[in-house]
């Protein structure tokens, strides 16, 4: 027996409604590194955990979508600040999860931090970019503004456990949606750790809910859930049959569906553009009469 200090292992937990529950099922599954070495046990979420996550996300939607865009930007930036401080932890977790060198993992973590900063800046600009006044032919002021779709289920990419995850979650919440995120099934640990960062970043509980487990098992009830407004199928990219099945289920309440994109497995480092922001926005158009200042404008 050496005198070397024994590391304190971490119990990875879900992140739901701002709390860190274990799966209600009591199940866990083994998470290994790319060489098969045991890293930790992750909660294996059940459909009931998914249901609870939707309840939490719906409850958080009013407050988060009603927050000012500036406030949301501040919160997202705070996430970047918190991540920066825990950079070493995430570099280790990403390196383990994806079998990468420390240097490569560090580059991905840095890119993920920068991605939060990028989306933090978008919160109060997207409305001006995709909304605006419409010059209708009549005495009306007509304005279109984007609004968040609601509760969005996000199937995080399977192979980019952290940068990919951040790249799909941040745009969803930047505009005021709330999210139920299914982490990469085989590499969920960075996602579960992200929950700990979000919990300390002024992000209201329930805005992001993170589940680990079997993707298909969790995605099916979420795709058919009548109180979920949209679903991002990125994490089903490798399984077209599953993606199709989920899209069919999503039609029950006409969820907005973001189909798996070719980007999966490719380079998540590229500048993402606005597509993932606009995919989960609704356009609301409001008409207001203007008319003349007085009654003298009328004639026949």
């Amino acid at each position: 027996m050496s005198d070397e200090r024994r590391r304190v292992f971490k119990t990875y937990k879900l992140y739901v409604g701002g709390k860190f529950p274990r799966s209600e099922s009591g199940r866990v599954y083994e998470v290994t590194d790319s060489k098969g070495k045991w890293l930790a046990n992750a909660p294996q979420s059940s459909r009931k955990d998914a249901r609870d996550a939707v309840v939490a996300a719906r409850k958080a939607f009013g407050g988060w979508s009603g927050a000012t865009a500036y406030n949301r930007g501040q919160v997202l930036y705070r996430v970047a600040e918190m991540l920066e401080g825990r950079r070493e932890q995430f570099v280790r977790e990403v390196a383990d999860a994806e079998g990468l060198s420390k240097a490569r993992a560090a580059a991905l973590v840095d890119a993920a931090v920068d991605r939060w900063v990028w989306y933090a800046g978008w919160t109060d600009k997207i409305g001006q970019v995709v909304g605006g006044a419409n010059p209708v032919a009549g005495p009306f002021f007509n304005l279109s503004t984007p609004e968040p779709t609601g509760v969005v289920t996000v199937l995080a990419p399977q192979d980019s456990s952290f940068l990919g995850l951040v790249s799909v979650v941040a745009p969803v919440i930047a505009t005021g949606n709330t999210a139920v995120v299914i982490a990469s099934a085989d590499a969920p640990l960075p996602a579960l750790s992200l929950g700990e960062v979000l919990a300390t970043s002024d992000l209201p509980g329930g805005v992001v809910n993170i589940l680990s487990g079997r993707t298909a098992e969790l995605a099916a009830p979420l795709a058919s859930h009548q109180d979920v407004n949209a679903i991002d199928l990125t994490g089903a990219a490798g399984d077209p049959a599953l993606a199709k099945e989920l899209e069919v289920a999503a039609a029950d309440n006409l969820k907005r569906v973001l189909r798996p994109q070719a980007v999966d497995g490719a380079d998540w480092s590229a500048e993402p553009g606005t597509r993932r922001l606009t995919a989960f926005l609704e356009t609301k158009t409001v008409w207001h009469p203007t008319g003349a200042l007085g009654a003298s404008g009328s004639s026949y």
Partner: peptide, 20 residues
């Protein structure tokens, strides 16, 4: 998706139309 304040059923080609 479309809200009419103090008016109703107004349409215009410049005005986006569609639902939630």
């Amino acid at each position: 998706g479309v809200i009419w304040a103090n008016t109703f059923n107004k349409f215009d080609p410049t005005s986006p139309f569609g639902g939630y």
